[in-house]
Every structure is written in C-alpha cells, then in structure tokens.
Write a protein that binds this DNA or RNA. Structure first.
Length: 173
DNA sequence: GGAATGATAAAG
DNA sequence: TTTATCATTCCG
C-alpha cells in the first residue's frame, strides 16, 4: 500500500538546517492514524536547532540515548516528551554527524508545539521514524510557497547569548 | 504568576 | 537511589 507516494525525499532534509526550516513552511504534515484516518496539516511555524555550537540544541549537551537520532542523517523523526505531557515533533536534518533538527512549532489550526504533538497522537514509538518510508507520518510538498518572517527562538533562555538572539524561528505570515 | 506531569541525566 | 531540569500549556 503506497499511501505516501508524494512524500518528500530524505535529500530535502540533508541540507543546512537553516535552509530546511523555512522550506518546510507551507508544506503538508501528513498523519496516518491507526484507524486508517489520514489528516494533513499545513506547517506554519518551525525553529532550527543546529548541532555543533548551538547550545540551544539538545544534542549539544552531549550524545545521549535520547539525542542520538539527531546525529543520524536527515529525514528521521525526533520526538521528545517535555514537561511530562507534550510530545515535541522534530525532523532531523543535515548529514550524519551534524546533530541538527527542525522543531515543528505550529501547524494550521493548531498553535503551540505541545498541541501539535497531542493532535498527532505522538508517542515514543515515533522516535527514529524515517519520513521517506513511514506509513504513519510523512511530509508532502503542497506545491505552494509561503512568505514568512523570522524571530528569535522561544523557551531557550538557558542557552545564553548569542543563541537566544539567533533569528532561527520561522513563521508563515 | 504558578501548577500539572513524566522522562532524562547527573549526583550520592 | 533521589533530585533538578526541562524546546509547554492551562488556569487564576
């Protein structure tokens, strides 16, 4: 069964995270639920988390079992349970060893990254899911380009400057 | 402003 | 083992 014939190839994600993040805006996040229902969400807000120097990126605190997938090649899913109740949805970007990822911060009709995870009924089984081969979650090109603005990222005060001020948050206008 | 709520990581 | 820390959201 090829329900995801239109999914974006992994090569899309294997670029600079600061390019992938704005490119994801306006694209369709597709969720195939266990009961067969397919729902498509238009991505309206993303944030780039760059490996290497960026202290706001989880992977920068050190390679752990949880952040390991970010060191893999782009096109994988990184899900993270925050505050014990919300699953954050991230896409791993870059080549193997780059430890970069894009946080899906908002989709159309839903504001807030925690609510995105709840709407998608995410759980830890999505950790490491490959967007190109998954039959549960993937991304499609909507064929449209969206205008967007940039802004500083949210909720990363612990990272300190200059990372707090980096305009790596992308919002569809 | 502060609580809810659970996995993770670091310390003892 | 315990404790502090969260890429958040909702209620007052």
């Amino acid at each position: 069964m090829t329900v995801n014939w239109n999914c974006i190839p992994n090569s899309f994600f294997q670029r600079e995270v600061t390019q992938v993040a704005p490119d994801l805006l306006g694209k369709l996040l597709v969720r195939h639920f266990d009961d067969g229902t397919i729902v498509k969400f238009r991505i309206t807000e993303t944030e780039a988390y760059r490996g290497g120097d960026d202290k706001a990126c989880h992977a920068n605190k050190g390679l752990t079992p949880r952040t390991r997938v970010m060191f893999e090649e782009g096109g994988l899913v990184y899900v993270y349970l925050i505050y014990g109740m919300y699953w954050m949805l991230n896409f791993v970007t870059g080549k193997a060893g780059d430890s970069s990822a894009v946080l899906i911060r908002g989709v159309e009709g839903i504001s807030g990254p925690g609510r995105v995870g709840r709407a998608l009924q995410l759980n830890k089984s999505f950790y490491g899911e490959n967007l190109a081969t998954s039959e549960r979650i993937w991304v499609e090109d909507a064929g449209t380009k969206s205008k967007y603005i940039t802004a500083p990222r949210v909720g990363i005060d612990y990272a300190g400057e200059p990372w707090i001020s980096k305009p790596w948050r992308y919002i569809v206008t």
